[in-house]
Simulated assay, not measured.
Amino acid sequence: MRRLLGLVALCFAFIFGSLSLGSAPAYAADIAHGAQVFSANCVACHMGGGNVVNGERTLKAEALDAYLADYSAGHEAAIAYQVTNGKNAMPAFGGKLSDTDIADVASYVEDMSAKGWS
Results as ranks from 00 to 15, higher is better:
L21I: 09
P91S: 13
L10G: 13
A66C: 09
P91L: 07
G6A: 15
K87Y: 15
D111F: 11
N51P: 09
D99W: 11
A103T: 00
A92S: 15
A114T: 05
N54M: 08
S118W: 06
L97D: 03
A66K: 08
D70G: 06
V43F: 10
L21W: 12
F12N: 11
E110M: 01
L4A: 14
C42Y: 01
S98T: 04
N41S: 13
F93L: 03
V43L: 13
Y27E: 15
S107L: 01
H75W: 03
A114Q: 09
S113I: 01
S18D: 09
G116R: 13
A29T: 01
G116Q: 13
P91M: 08
A9L: 09
S98F: 11
A61N: 07
G95A: 08
A106H: 00
R2P: 03
G17R: 03
A63G: 09
D111T: 06
E56D: 15
D99R: 14
P91H: 10
R2E: 14
N88T: 07
L19C: 04
D111R: 04
S118P: 02
A29W: 01
V83H: 02
S118Y: 11
L68F: 14
L4D: 05
L97F: 04
A40T: 12
D101L: 02
D99K: 15
M47W: 05
C42E: 01
G49I: 10
A89D: 11
A61T: 07
D65G: 13
K87S: 14
F14C: 13
H33K: 10
P91R: 05
A61D: 08
F14T: 14
K96G: 12
D104C: 04
G17C: 10
L97M: 10
L97R: 00
A32P: 10
A80Q: 01
A89C: 09
A35D: 03
E56N: 15
G50C: 06
V8G: 06
A24V: 09
A29D: 01
G94R: 04
C45N: 03
V8M: 10
H33R: 14
A69I: 06
V83Q: 02
M1N: 09
N54E: 15
G17N: 04
Q82M: 08
S18P: 11
D104L: 02
G34T: 00
G48Y: 03
D104S: 04
F12D: 12
F14I: 12
A35W: 03
Y108S: 00
A69N: 14
G48A: 06
H75A: 13
S20H: 11
N85T: 01
G22C: 07
W117E: 12
A40G: 08
A114R: 14
D65E: 15
L21D: 06
P25Y: 01
C42S: 06
L21H: 09
S98H: 08
G17Q: 05
C42P: 08
M47D: 08
V53Q: 15
D111M: 08
